[in-house]
Amino acid sequence: MPQKTFRAALNEALHQEMAADPRVVIFGEDITGGVGGDGEADAWGGAFGVSKGLLAKFGPERVLDTPISESAFVGAAAGAALMGLRPVVEIMFVDFIGVCLDQVMNQAAKFRYMFGGKARTPMVLRATFGAGARSASQHSQALYPIFTHIPGLKVVVPSNPADAKGLLIQAIRDDDPVIFLEHKMLYDTVGEVPDKPYVTPFGEARVVREGDDVTIVALGRMVGRAEEAARTLAAEGIQATILDPRTTSPLDADTILEFAEETGRVVVVDEANPRCGMAADIAALVAEEAFGALKAPILKVTPPHTPVPYAPSLEDAYLPDAARIAEAARRAARYQA
C-alpha cells in the first residue's frame, strides 16, 4: 500500500471530494496564498500546505482566499451550507476560534435544533491544534473539549494519515457541522494510505493494539506516544490495549466500556488541559458505567492546568510523553485494592 504523509492524505481527500461533488468549496486565510501579488499563485496552499494544488484544479470560484476575518468567513460557511454548498473552511490555528466562536457555537451548531429539524448545515471547519512547535500559548492549544461540549457539532481528532483521509472524506460528506482538528506535529508523519476515496465512520474507536493488563485511551498525537509507552510496558511484561476514539463527538462509549470491563484498569491520555477535558469525560463515563469491573482507580495523563509555554524545556515538560503514560499504566496495572 502507498505510503503518504498526514498532509498528503488530507490533500488527497480534498482533491477527491472536490472532484466528486461540485458543491464542495474551500476557503480560508492563505488557502492559496499569493493572491494579488505578481509572483507565484497558490504560493502557500494553506498555511501548512494542506490545500496546495486545489486552485489549479478547481479554480478561484471554489477555492477562495479570505481576508483575515474569521467571524465573517466561518459564518459565511454556515450560511452557505444552509443554502446548498458543502464548504470546507480552514482556521489556521484552532486558537483563533476565540474571535469567531459565535458563528460555530450559536449559529451552525444550533440551526437544526432551534429550527425544529428543518436545517442542514454540512460544513467542515478544519483547524490545526496542539503543542510541540514552540508556538506558545495562542497557537498551541488542544481545544476539542470546547467543541465536544456543544451539541450539534461533530468533532474529529485523527491520529494517523489513513484515518485523516477517511475521516476528512466522511466529514465533507456528513450533513452536520464537523470540527476537524489536525495536530500540527503530525503533518509530516507517514503511514499507509489507500489511493481511492474511502470513509472512516464517526463514533467508531480504533483498537490500536490489544492487551489484557490495562486499557489506555488516547487521542490525536497522544496515540503515538501511548504506542511508544506500550512497547516499553510489553518489555516489562505489561500488555496494554490502546483505544483511539478518533471522534470525541460522537464518542464510541461502547468500545471504551467494553475494554474497560475486560482489563478493569483504565488510563486516559489527553493533550487538552485537565479541567472539563476528554480525560475527565471518559474517566467519568467509565466510573459511572463500568464501576463494578474496575480493579484500580482510573488515571488521567494530561498537561497541567496552565497555558502552553514557549521554552522547549517547559513545553516538553508540559506535554504528556511516553514515560509518563507508561508510569501511569504501570500504576494502574499493579494497583492492589
Partner: peptide, 20 residues
C-alpha cells in the same frame, strides 16, 4: 438571538447563490 449574528450568514447564502 445574537446581535450581529446575521451578516456573516448572508455572505454565505450569497456565496451559495453566486457559486450555484
Amino acid at each position: 438571538g445574537i446581535v450581529g449574528g446575521g451578516p456573516p450568514l448572508v455572505c454565505g447564502a450569497a456565496l451559495a447563490a453566486k457559486t450555484l
